[in-house]
Write a protein that binds this DNA or RNA. Sequence first.
DNA 1: TTTTATTCTGCAACGATTGCGAATTGCCAA
DNA 2: TTGGCAATTCGCAATCGTTGCAGAATAAAA
Lengths: 161, 161
Amino acid sequence: MSGVRSPTELSAVFRANGLRVTPQRQLLFRLLYADTTHPTADALFTVASEQMPGISLRTVYQTLTDLTSMGELQSFDFDGTATRFAPNLGEHHHVVCRSCAKAADVHVDGTTHLRIDGLGGFSVESSDIVFRGLCSECAASATITSITSITSITSSKGSRS
Amino acid sequence: MSGVRSPTELSAVFRANGLRVTPQRQLLFRLLYADTTHPTADALFTVASEQMPGISLRTVYQTLTDLTSMGELQSFDFDGTATRFAPNLGEHHHVVCRSCAKAADVHVDGTTHLRIDGLGGFSVESSDIVFRGLCSECAASATITSITSITSITSSKGSRS
DNA sequence: TTTTATTCTGCAACGATTGCGAATTGCCAA
DNA sequence: TTGGCAATTCGCAATCGTTGCAGAATAAAA
Ligand SMILES: [Mn+2]
Ligand SMILES: [Mn+2]
Ligand SMILES: [Zn+2]
Ligand SMILES: [Zn+2]
């Protein structure tokens, strides 16, 4: 239920579902294992290409789709850009940086005490909580930018861009 | 802070921001007023076209973008499909039907008691909770489908597709 | 009314994702 | 081990949602 499934285990899952285990798939199993960045298909394609030049982006999408429909991965749409994929761990939620789009897992206590008002016939099966804010790196550079900006205004005697 | 801003109020907001009030914009203000469906740009375009044939989808996008950057609308990416827009009411969250993608507002109590573990340097500025499940219509038709399916299996003596 | 900066529209371009068909290949059976 | 063949990969075109751009239209100030 929790923990990342190993490449070997994923191979077994594929065979159990009547799917073949190819070098491309094995590589992706390895890359996904212990990847905590919630990467996009294209990000995985880039790193996969280093180890296997010629692998196609189409195959990356295919494998991610397969893994997702088998329940081994979850897919997320944190913003309007590319879909992000991550191992389907136990119940957890996410923080997303509004500046660099970095995402991280968080564990949230107290979700069972939430009172939902206004459901009007909807039945709830799951919940996704996305906390938005700034990662530490972006918070740091925001501070620097702000200081630079003040310095710039001071030293340029109030010019406007 | 809460409640939908009226077309007249939105016109004032536009003028206050140095933007002009055009018939296209006024129409969209009216359509958005009291629209609780969290429509896509294209859905709004369709209904707008009925009242103003010739209005362009580009203009709908433009106006939605303007309203969003003025803080009058919020935009959501519930799934990988089109962005959805809705008046920026007070704090509230959403239920989304996994079958027909209908979205509705819900009010959630207890969010202040959530304990977030594993933030690791992230500063949280806001949170979005999306509850996923089935709306009453889809739940009803799912039941019917299920019964039909059983009937079909029974009457076809166990054939497999 | 005249003027002009803003807005509208149509269309091209873009990024992400999927459909498709031909070439390749994992895997099972002999 | 070696076919045989269905599954898979790959490249490319197509699709979808959205945005950039430029010329025509127009809100609103004078
Ligand atoms: Mn995660
Ligand atoms: Mn809402
Ligand atoms: Zn960041
Ligand atoms: Zn539904």
